[in-house]
């Protein structure tokens, strides 16, 4: 399902048997349950009422619970709910008036500032209050995207960071978040980032091997080697940590 939906659907895995975060991370690495976008935690954000696992809760684009069920028996219902939500994510809720729907769709196309500004500029009238509410919602989503860019840079995920940086630089021009985006984009092109990028590339190569062949002796050796060669970089430290966790 993760492969099918990619970045359009957020997957959040909650470890529910009391395993420590470190052991969970090790388990995830060993099982190759790693994804560019899936997030893991040991912290349940809510109760499900379920007595066993696996268990799955599907949240709509506004956080509404759509399904609370076993993911195996409810597989078809989950897929149908996701498809409907993906359509909604593109077009916006049916009850939206034309200006609100356009703002929503513009945001989806990456025109973040234009979308938010159009809502703020709505004249007094029936749409004004709903427009303000939607503008606040989209502001929050734009901020989450900027936070994600900061995280990607910190995590040495430069390939994704480059793409998101370009997208945000264009889409948030003229918005209050523009300065923050410029600062982050500037850090991505800084000369002193070259060793970090080189290390990230080396780690990426080993990770690809792990996805293909699993965690074997050769992969552990390579992880250790990346960790030693790029010891002063974020990716190097990540490689060393992975090697240590996986038993090198």
């Amino acid at each position: 399902m993760q492969e099918k939906y990619g970045d359009d659907v957020q997957f959040l895995f909650v470890e529910s048997q009391g395993t420590s975060p470190e052991d969970t991370e090790k388990f995830v690495l060993q099982k190759k349950w790693i994804s560019d976008h899936a997030i893991w935690t040991n912290e349940a954000p809510f109760e499900t009422g379920a007595r066993g696992i696996p268990h799955c809760v599907v949240l709509g684009i506004d956080g509404e619970v759509l399904i609370n069920d076993n993911p195996l028996s409810a597989h078809s219902a989950i897929e149908a709910a996701l498809e409907a939500q993906l359509k909604l994510a593109k077009k916006g809720p049916k009850e939206f008036s034309a200006p609100l729907a356009k703002a929503w769709q513009d945001f989806d196309k990456g025109l973040y500032a234009a979308s938010i500004n159009s809502l703020k500029a709505l004249p007094e009238g029936a749409d004004k209050a709903e427009g303000a509410k939607l503008a606040a919602n989209l502001e929050s989503r734009a901020k989450a995207k900027v936070n994600r860019l900061a995280w990607l840079i910190e995590a040495a995920e430069f390939e994704q960071a480059d793409k998101l940086s370009a997208q945000l630089s264009k889409g948030l021009a003229g918005h209050a978040l523009e300065e923050k985006v410029k600062e982050l984009a500037g850090s991505l092109t800084a000369k002193d980032l070259a060793p970090e990028r080189e290390a990230a590339k080396a780690l990426d190569k080993v990770e690809k091997k792990i996805v293909k062949d699993g965690v074997d002796a050769a992969a552990l050796k390579q992880l250790k080697s990346v960790g030693e060669k790029f010891a002063q970089t974020r990716a190097g430290k990540k490689a060393a940590r992975m090697a240590s966790m996986l038993g090198a």
Binding site: V14, S16, S140, R141
Partner: peptide, 16 residues
Amino acid sequence: LGDLAGRPVVVEFWGT
């Protein structure tokens, strides 16, 4: 969870 608004979210409970 609010940071995930705008996209559907699949929260899966699992174990090790």
